[in-house]
Design a protein around this nucleic acid. Structure first.
Lengths: 109, 109
DNA sequence: ACGTTTCGTAAGCGAAGGCTTACGGTTATG
DNA sequence: CATAACCGTAAGCCTTCGCTTACGAAACGT
């Protein structure tokens, strides 16, 4: 999960992922869409693959890559949980605050 | 959005964000929960604030921080769109593949 | 069999990032 | 008014990261 976030934090890797959405492309062809060298793209692909955001299929001398929607789904779920717990704590805090106010109203000065 | 992803890519910042979920804490007290120095935490808080993941409220000499659930919501939406477009392209690709198969069945060899 | 295509990997470089120590500025406290 | 508390910022260090060039390995084409 940490790897997923780190992989997505790099703008170029996001673009690569968009490019690989749906279609399956060989490493070299991916590189032609960008202004950096082919090895740079290859390294990015390794990072994306390590994060399970991309699948690799070797056929002959070519390495075909494709975006893995499930990889993003994992992040989506993680984020949803994060968000829910944040909201839960928020309402807890609101309740505690309300309690504080009530106590102040009844038993103060 | 890029800033949001970069901010969340750092594990320590995730923990800080969790710590600030619901409750509002002064910078110094946040620092006590970690093994790094207070300035380090302060810098992390600046990054989180720049990404709108945290709100700052200055009262006297203390700077109170609190997690901003809306900040996460932005990321959630962005990710949902990303995911949807990925699925859309995927079904496009599937349809094209089906079309290819059909053509092969009728007009080949 | 030999050259060519396709590709990952190693080495090295410059920039960015996270951390620490040192400092200064504002607000509370006696 | 002097001292202490709280905190952001600057400077410097070390690691990480993205990139390039150079290279080696595997499969393809003739």
């Amino acid at each position: 999960m940490q790897q997923v976030l780190r992989a997505l934090a790099e703008p170029r890797r996001q673009e690569i992922l968009r490019l690989l959405s749906g279609r399956e492309l060989p490493s070299g062809e991916v590189a032609t869409h960008f202004s950096v060298s082919r090895p740079a793209i290859s390294q990015h692909l390794q990072v994306l693959k390590a994060a399970d955001l991309v699948s690799e299929r070797v056929v002959g001398t070519r390495h075909l890559y494709r975006a893995r929607p499930e990889g993003l789904a994992e992040l989506r779920d993680f984020l949803a949980e994060f968000w829910d717990s944040a909201l839960a704590r928020l309402s807890e805090a609101a309740a505690a605050e309300q309690e504080r106010i009530n106590n102040e109203r009844s038993g103060s000065t």
